[in-house]
Design a protein around this nucleic acid. Structure first.
Length: 563
RNA sequence: CGGGAUGUAGCACAGCUUGGUAGUGCACUUGAUUUGGGAUCAAGGGGUCACAGGUUCGAAUCCUGCCAUCCCGACCA
């Protein structure tokens, strides 16, 4: 590409409405441009990176025998009603009506349509296994789009679906996809970890996430310092911390604690550590109030709570509800005399002589023990914390943050049951098909790569996804020899199949260098006054400059960029 | 959806408190000088001050409404 008559621009300053380093760089480098909240234009350079990422994904998908298809975005609402997910997605689905008043949605993910497509083929167990994938636009009306390309409302996703006759078949298909995902992440040069995750609205048996490691990631990854344990915090199991010495149980008493509502304030009042307190949080679980007890320094894990109570919707109760079940202002809830079911985190069962709210405004009970109240149930209901014991090996837990670039699901028979996707087995019995689904967000991968590889000069793309591999900078476009030699090198490299930018703009050298570094071209050939002595300069994006004889430069590129 | 903030030239911002000719830097055009790390000087072009009402002789500025964008929270596949 010759820059002079191309759609190419860069901005010298950050823009106002982007927060992340990576999204600002992508905007400044002219890769993307925000169109509206959570919706982006993909401009020429950005599209090239996207297409390279997509090509790597396609190659790995094709290698597993997966076949590419393309599903519509515009889907009758009925499709999601019949699978039971219309309600699950709720208002995060874009919904619209056609001219006849029929209800449509814009697809947020496509398990249903792939299951319907599979029905066309599957009659008997002999029709499986097979798998399909697509590279297609998804729509999700996020309550709060943010973080550049990370949380958006319209995005391209590669989604794949496997179809098998039984669980053993699904295991094989899942392993193949899982392996392909590892290959993809490796080829993209992402710094990533694979973690266990919640299956969420997708449902099914198992979910694993491919998380790009970066401090700005939205997900908290729970890792162990001494084994390979890796989990999203939402499902990381906790080992209850038992006291080292058993205390003698003391007599409970009521203490006046005016103006002490938060754990910090109450801890201050008693001059005790938060670990000696139990906080009682009132949740609304499918509309019913439920109290949850965790140690004062812990947080309730709502995913675990939802699973334990087999609920669909878990959220903190509003103030009115809290007042109703505790007969007190918010901040004084406790298990004694509360008017709703109480569930305790496992750890609370091992605590002694602790402090809880008294369900009376301005009062707490001290020296409370488990005999002093009754609970409806208990279990692992808290978030694991840094420094906790690894549930797998007993090592120490540490946190990292990640961007969820890919996700694999063992769906099982959830969708085949809902959509009557069945086959005849060898004894002529109708059986449900076993499905798996597998997603990757190429744009998230692009953002994660920019985030992981940016420096003070701009983006530093891995050569496999860089929009161009080599930039040729002409120092003076008024020097005919420089122009002629640069053009010749450009033509030669292009002919040999390299992707090359020729910066033939009438700009000062500094501007061209800065621009090529900002957009992250991995290698640069500079044609300047050295051409009089038959020399050009060769430089890696982050490496040192070196002089190369002009007749050797093609060879130099071929040696450096091995393809 | 709750809380907070911001909308002024392509980009980043000032001006608003105290109403009176719409400004600065970058970018852009022309000329000159420069020419290996975001040049300098000079002269220019470009704005319905988000939008809609209202107050006023007069509104970017005050009032009301509304839309958009961003941040925190809730939510999150």
């Amino acid at each position: 590409m010759k820059l002079k008559n191309s759609f190419f621009y860069t901005l010298r300053e950050n823009v106002r409405d982007e927060e992340l380093v990576s999204s600002n760089l992508l905007v400044r480098a002219g890769f993307i441009k925000k169109s509206s909240a959570g919706v982006y234009m993909m401009l020429p350079l950005g599209l090239r990176v996207m297409q390279k990422i997509e090509e790597i994904i396609r190659q790995e998908m094709d290698a597993t025998g997966c076949q590419e298809v393309l599903m519509p975005s515009l889907i009758p609402e009925e499709v999601y009603v019949s699978s039971g997910r219309r309600e699950g997605f709720g208002s995060s689905m874009f919904a619209l009506k056609d001219r006849k008043g029929q209800d449509y949605v814009l697809g947020p993910t496509h398990e249903e349509l792939f299951a319907l497509a599979a029905k066309m083929k599957i009659r008997s167990y002999k029709d499986m296994p097979f798998s399909l994938y697509q590279m297609q636009t998804k729509f999700r009306d996020e309550p709060r789009p943010r973080f550049g390309l990370i949380r958006v409302r319209e995005f391209i996703m590669k989604d794949a679906y496997t179809f098998d006759a039984d669980e053993a078949g699904l295991d094989v298909a899942y392993a193949k996809q899982f392996n392909a995902y590892k290959n993809i992440m490796d080829r993209l040069h992402l710094d990533y970890r694979i973690v266990r995750a919640d299956t969420g609205v997708m449902g099914g048996l198992l979910s694993e996430e491919f998380q790009a490691i970066t401090p700005i990631g939205e997900d908290v990854l729970v890792l162990c310092d001494s084994c390979d344990f890796a989990s999203n915090i939402e499902v990381a199991p906790c080992i209850p911390q038992k006291p080292e010495v058993k205390e003698e149980e003391k007599e409970m008493y009521l203490e006046e604690t005016p103006n002490s509502r938060t754990i910090e304030e109450v801890a201050e009042h008693f001059h005790l550590d938060a670990k000696k307190f139990v906080k009682t949080l009132i949740y609304s679980v499918d509309g019913n109030p439920v109290a949850v007890m965790v140690r004062g320094d812990r947080d309730v894990n709502e995913t675990k709570l939802r699973k334990m109570l087999n609920a669909t919707n878990v959220e903190l109760a509003d103030a009115d509800t809290v007042v109703r079940v505790t007969d007190a202002q918010v901040g004084f809830a406790g298990p004694i005399g509360i008017k709703c079911p109480v569930y305790a985190d496992e750890e609370v069962l091992y605590m002694q002589n602790f402090i809880v709210g008294a369900n009376k405004t301005g009062y707490h009970y001290a020296n409370v023990n488990n005999k002093d109240f009754t609970i409806t149930g208990h279990g692992d209901l808290r978030n694991i914390m840094e420094g906790d014991i690894c549930p797998k090996c007993g090592g120490t837990i540490e946190f990292k943050h990640g961007i969820e670039v890919g996700n694999t699901f063992k769906l099982g028979t959830k969708y085949s049951k809902a959509l009557d996707l069945r086959y005849l087995d060898s004894s002529n019995q109708l059986q449900d098909v076993w499905m798996g689904s597998y997603g990757i967000g190429p744009a998230r991968a692009m953002a994660a790569l920019a985030e992981q590889n940016a420096d003070e000069n701009g983006i530093n793309w891995p050569i496999e996804v860089a929009p161009y591999q080599v930039a040729i900078v002409i120092i003076s476009t008024k020097d005919e020899q420089q122009v002629a030699e640069a053009e010749r090198i450009y033509a030669e490299l292009t002919r040999k199949g390299y992707e090359v930018i020729l910066d033939d703009r009438d700009e000062r050298p500094g501007v061209k260098f800065k621009d090529m570094e900002l957009i992250g071209i991995p290698y640069r050939i500079t044609v300047g006054k050295g051409i009089k002595d038959g020399k050009v300069e060769f430089k890696a994006r982050t490496g040192e400059k070196m002089d190369v004889a002009v007749e050797d430069i093609i060879t130099k590129v071929q040696e450096t960029i091995v393809r």
